[in-house]
Amino acid sequence: MELIEGVLSYLGSEAFLLGAVNTIKLTLVSQIVAVVLGFIIALAKMSRWKPLQGLAASYIWIFRGIPVLVQLIFVYNALPQFGIKLSGFQSAFVALALNEAAYMAEIVRSGLASVGKGQHRAAHALGMNNWQRMRYVVLPQAFRVIVPPTANQFIGMLKTSAMASVVGYTDLLLTAQQTASANFDYIDTLIAAVIYYLAFTALFTFVQSYLERRMDTTRTKKRQPKLFSGLKNREPNRIV
């Protein structure tokens, strides 16, 4: 009972609420910027201009190849020697977004590549310019491939964001550690942090399945009534 009471008191405490808000803030900002950067890098990698392709490939190689923690510490501790001094939040945001962009680039690229050549050609033949072709033909189809793994990346980012605690950003983990260092109550404080993490993961998972279902609607649900409505209505009756 004491454990539950302890955990509950931490969960509702101002420090933990702030930690939770900070974790979410860092996660969302980093991931959203990573998605945008990922698009740019993916387009660069798919461009016909070789130097641009090479640049994109090098980016992916470097940022995917170095441990995130190393990148984070580099941004926080090494950049100041070049005169770039960033706060804990800024360092974490820069490191996490740049790192994640490399992964997003690959996800976006596979999504764009999943749209067949014929779709591009047909749009072109109808007089659409590059932007219109992208906006109305390619992206809506690519999104179906891009969204599910991107939602996974959001969940991954939520957990990776805990690294920000090493550069002094008061996220959930640092909040738990700081609280515990005052009263040695590691169990209760960490459990409180864990509950927040699991709750956020559950929330993201829910959003993910909602998005997947919604994308499915435009594709299959509308048609299902026409194709399978007879079947659907009959089946329960048959079982009874």
């Binding site: 067949g116 014929g118 779709q119 050609r121 047909a122 749009a123 033909v137 809506p140 189809q141 179906r144 435009t218 594709r219």
Partner: peptide, 8 residues
């Protein structure tokens, strides 16, 4: 030849 209707 391959119709190429917009699938979505």
């Amino acid at each position: 030849q391959s119709f190429d209707l917009f699938q979505h």
